[in-house]
Amino acid sequence: MQYDSTSRIGLHWAAYVELDSAYLWEPSEYAEGITAADILGVEAPLWTETVTNRADIDYLVFPRIAAIAEVAWTTRTGEIGKDLVKEFLFMEKNGRFRG
């Protein structure tokens, strides 16, 4: 999946998936009738049709994998989501997410 219309990596066949979309969702609210007790985990597949090197992999994985882990392992409260997305973006911009 492409992150936005300017991404050179990824394919746009379903939707753009920006960082905030990777974090600001709740698995137990994804479909009617599913509760948190029904969920065993989440996944973050890496589609590599357009990947040609390690830098491409890093671009697609980081910091989104941290956002997915946060979704899977924590309980949301208040406005933490917006602050966390800002922190991920800061870390990404400053090269703190490197494989």
Score class of each variant (00 low, 15 high):
residue 18 E to H: 03
residue 78 G to A: 13
residue 79 E to M: 11
residue 22 A to P: 01
residue 7 S to L: 13
residue 65 I to S: 06
residue 37 A to T: 07
residue 10 G to C: 07
residue 43 E to R: 03
residue 93 K to P: 08
residue 74 T to Q: 05
residue 13 W to T: 14
residue 98 R to H: 13
residue 69 A to M: 12
residue 29 E to D: 08
residue 76 R to Q: 11
residue 1 M to W: 01
residue 63 P to A: 10
residue 61 V to C: 11
residue 23 Y to R: 00
residue 68 I to Q: 15
residue 93 K to F: 10
residue 21 S to G: 11
residue 2 Q to S: 00
residue 37 A to R: 05
residue 41 G to I: 02
residue 21 S to N: 02
residue 75 T to P: 00
residue 92 E to Q: 10
residue 7 S to H: 12
residue 55 A to I: 08
residue 92 E to K: 05
residue 21 S to M: 01
residue 13 W to V: 11
residue 33 G to N: 12
residue 7 S to P: 06
residue 41 G to P: 06
residue 23 Y to H: 00
residue 7 S to I: 14
residue 15 A to I: 13
residue 68 I to L: 04
residue 95 G to D: 15
residue 31 A to V: 14
residue 26 E to P: 05
residue 76 R to F: 07
residue 67 A to M: 06
residue 35 T to Q: 12
residue 20 D to N: 03
residue 49 E to F: 09
residue 13 W to H: 14
residue 52 T to W: 08
residue 22 A to Q: 00
residue 17 V to D: 01
residue 65 I to K: 06
residue 28 S to W: 05
residue 16 Y to D: 04
residue 12 H to R: 12
residue 21 S to W: 01
residue 12 H to K: 15
residue 5 S to L: 10
residue 63 P to G: 09
residue 71 V to R: 03
residue 92 E to L: 01
residue 49 E to Q: 07
residue 37 A to L: 09
residue 46 L to F: 02
residue 27 P to F: 10
residue 43 E to P: 05
residue 43 E to N: 04
residue 67 A to V: 13
residue 58 D to Q: 15
residue 32 E to C: 09
residue 24 L to Q: 00
residue 64 R to F: 05
residue 49 E to P: 14
residue 51 V to K: 06
residue 25 W to T: 04
residue 51 V to R: 10
